[in-house]
Simulated assay, not measured.
Amino acid sequence: MEWSKSLSNLVLSVYGITFIIGVPANILAFYTFIRKVRLRATPIDVLLLSLTTSDLVFLFFLPFRMVEAANMRWDMPYFLCPLSGFIFYSTIYNSTLLLTAISVERYLGVAFPIQYKLKRRPLYAAIASAVFAVVSMAQCSIVYIMQYYDHKNPTAIAPSGRNTCYEVFSTEQLEILIPVRLELFLVMFLIPFLICCFCYISFVRILSRLPNISPKKRFRAIGLALGTLLIFIICFMPYNISHVEGFVNWKSADWRVYALLTSTFNACLDPLVFYFSSSALREMCNHFIKKLLRRPVFASCRKAMYCSAVEESTQSSNDSSR
C-alpha cells in the first residue's frame, strides 16, 4: 500500500469519527456494566463488560494509527508498530467471539429457559471471556512474527529502519501469512458468523411465537439480532473476505486498507448491541439524556420554543377571530 493525501484524509476521517463517537459511548457502557456487575452480575453483563473493555482498549491504541495516517509513514518508535497492530487485530477478533457468545446466551435463555437458568453462572461467562481473549491474542500473534521474521536476511530491511508498519511483506513472509489469514477467516469469522445467524434467527422466531411477549420486547429482540448481524456484515465481513481473495491470488489484496476501515466502526456499533441487550444501559442512557436536557442551555432552548409556539397559536387565534 502506498500512502496518498486522499487516502490519508479518508483514514483520518474514519478513525476520527470512530474515536469521537466510540469513546464516550463505550465509557458510558463501561460505567453502567461495572455498576451492574458489582450489584448483581449475570452472564450477559459479564460478556457485555468484556466487550466494551475490548472496545476501549482498541480505541486507546487507535491514535497510533491516526498519527501514521497523518504522517503517511511510520515515524514512531518501531516497537509500537507490532504492539499497536497486535492490539488492533486482537480486539477486532475478540469482539467477534464475544458477540457470538452473547448470541448463544440470548438463544439459550429463550430456547431452554428452565434448564439454562439453573446452570447459568457469571463465572462461566468470565472464564469464556478470558479464553476468548487468549485465543484472539494467540491467533493474532502472527503480527509480531511477521514484523520480525527473516529480518536477519542481508537483503531485508531491519525493523528499526522501516518507515512502514505491517504493510510490505517479502515472498517468504507471504508463504506463512496468507494461509494464516485464511485460517482467521474460517475460525474467527465464518464459524462465529454462522453461529450468530442460527442463534438470532431462532431467538426471534421463538419470541414471535410466545403470546405474552410485549411489542417492546419483540422490538428489542429484533434490534439486537439485526444490530449484531450488521456488525458482522459491515465491520468484519469485508476485511475477512480480503483474506480469501489473498489466498486465491496468493498476495495481499490491494483493497485491504479500505476493508480494514470498516472494521474500526465496530467500536461505534457495539453500543447498539449494549443498548438492546441491557436494561441497565437503557435506563442509564435515559437518565443521562434527561439530565442533559435539564442543563440551562437546553432549558432556555425549550423555553424559547414553547414561547414561540404559544405566540404562533395566539396569532392564529386572533387571525381566525377576525
Results as ranks from 00 to 15, higher is better:
Asn318Tyr: 15
Ser313Pro: 03
Leu182Ser: 04
Cys307Thr: 14
Phe88Asp: 05
Leu56Arg: 00
Leu174Trp: 06
Ser277Leu: 09
Ser313Gln: 14
Tyr31Leu: 13
Ile92Gln: 05
Leu182Gly: 01
Phe203Trp: 07
Ala69His: 01
Ile213His: 10
Val46Ile: 10
Pro43Arg: 09
Cys301Gly: 14
Leu83Asn: 00
Val57Phe: 07
Arg294Ser: 14
Val37His: 12
Thr314Ala: 15
Met137Lys: 08
Leu51Ser: 05
Thr264Lys: 03
Phe64Thr: 09
Pro271Thr: 01
Cys81His: 01
Ile34His: 14
Arg181Pro: 00
Leu51Gln: 01
Gly227Cys: 08
Asn286Glu: 12
Ile92His: 09
Ala309Leu: 12
Val37Tyr: 08
Ile27His: 06
Phe232Ser: 04
Val134Ser: 08
Ile206Tyr: 06
Pro77Leu: 02
Phe88Asn: 04
Phe19Gln: 10
Asn286Tyr: 08
Phe112Gly: 01
Leu48His: 09
Phe247Cys: 02
Arg35Ala: 14
Val244His: 05
Asn71Gly: 02
Ile87Asp: 02
Phe60Gln: 02
Lys152Ser: 15
Leu7Ala: 13
Ala70His: 04
Met188Asn: 05
Arg256Ser: 12
Gln147Ser: 12
Thr262Val: 03
Ile191Lys: 02
Asn212Asp: 14
Val168Gly: 08
Leu118Asp: 10
